[in-house]
Design a binder for these strands. Structure first.
Lengths: 247, 247
DNA sequence: ATTTGTGAATGGGTTCACAGCA
DNA sequence: TGCTGTGAACCCATTCACAAAT
């Protein structure tokens, strides 16, 4: 109940669900409930109760038997675990359609990841204004990263230059990359990489749709997880790759 | 080598990788190679060779020992399996920042999923032009879906109305949904759902970054996808939820 | 000599079911 | 009595390693 020693290593799949639990708890924020059961949290997060309990146990067991979990404390623990006690500015590379949209997307800043800079390789775009930001040259990436103290970079360029951009981000000191370009990118082992490929998501949906239409009810559940993002036909939402996408 | 009978049920994780293989093969398109080894394809897709072979075996074994796989035939099989032999127009619900960006995103049409319609609940937006499309009222969703013959819907609304929109999509006949709203959404078992939550991706990266900075080199691989998109620190890129996002 | 296809081994994650505690 | 925490069982996925095929 009090401070617990650092838990066992947290499984990948659990990590991917923590943000979902966090979001669910935040929605409960004002609610009168000071405590929440694994059952209720499971419902909010779209997973089952046993999974919630096991996941939370990796954080160190902050529940009380017969009662449930203290909401405030859970929020605190999860935020700390996820490193969300401070804002992490991100730099977006590639200011085309997608990059621009991401730059304007409220959701990032709202959840602790303000867009701190935009860079592009096209000299014609450099100096252009997007929201509050002015597009900078990719040549200045090291300076931009240093200025922001940024360690997170988003790649929103065409696929052809994604690897090159990733290399530049790494060279500039970025340690976490979220890749939106439809290309396989590799990074050194000390850099984290996640990818979001919108067309791939649709193709996966297309697969299951085809299956269903063909008469085979391939009902699956999943979660990535992820990575993914579960994927397939099923009802509730779960993370991971399979059935549901990610959250 | 010739026509093979329908293979065993294809695992979720394999389905999530097929689009990546497909993309890799397409990049090889013009190349002179008529054939490709599992080793080479693995390299292009950012996975290991054993996985490629097992995955392809679910499609029915179209390789030739000592030689490799026929590129053309693989492309054909995968496209067929993924239902990509025809275009699937999609309808985007919610034309805010994100919805607008998605509407302009080339990547969808390029890969067989042209945006066929945009709908929004805000009367002020209805009638507005975005690219070639005119925003329609969400009240007309059933008609829009019927007109397009669409079975895929994208939710790009605020979280608060995501479930409501999902219900409307389902009622209108949509059988596959890609949810971008940061909310848990549930659908009937005969409807496929995947989710993409951009802030969640960043939070996962934040977790691993924190771990690393804290001295623990938590090197993991993933794919979500995994998570999903796989998720964590690691080098190569893979699909699924975890380590890598999805592509 | 190569490279596939696949059983067997291994590992991670989910679910069960119940003991332990409030 | 209620709900957490967790070992055990189960299931899916990855990886190994080698026999089969060309």
């Amino acid at each position: 109940m009090t401070d617990r020693p650092p838990r066992r290593r947290i499984p990948e799949a659990t990590v991917a669900r923590l943000p979902v639990y966090l979001r669910s708890l935040l929605e409960l924020a004002d609610g009168p409930a000071a405590t929440i059961s694994s059952e209720r949290l499971a419902e909010l997060a779209g997973v089952n109760a046993a999974k919630v309990r096991k996941d939370l146990s990796y954080l160190g067991s902050y529940g009380t038997r017969g009662v449930g979990y203290d909401v405030e404390y859970l929020l605190f623990q999860m935020s700390r675990e996820l490193g969300l006690t401070q804002d992490w500015p991100v730099v977006i590379v590639g200011v085309g359609n997608l990059g621009q949209a991401l730059a304007n997307y409220r959701g990032f800043a709202d959840r602790g990841f303000p867009v701190g800079a935009l860079v592009d390789a096209d000299p014609a775009k450099v100096g252009e204004r997007v929201g509050d930001l002015v597009i900078e040259s990719i040549d200045d990436l090291p300076a931009v990263v240093a200025r922001l103290g940024t360690t997170i970079g988003l790649i929103a360029t065409p696929a052809a230059v994604a690897q090159e951009v990733a290399d530049e981000l790494v060279a500039a000191g970025v340690r976490s990359i979220l890749n939106f370009a439809p290309a396989v990118v590799t990074v050194p082992p000390d850099v984290s990489l996640r990818k979001v490929d919108l067309a791939v998501e649709l193709q996966i949906l297309s697969f299951y749709q085809r299956r269903r239409t063909a008469g085979l009810a391939a009902a699956v559940e999943a979660s990535a997880r992820g990575d993914g993002n579960g994927a397939a036909p099923g009802s509730s939402g779960v993370p991971t790759i399979p059935a549901e996408a990610s959250e």
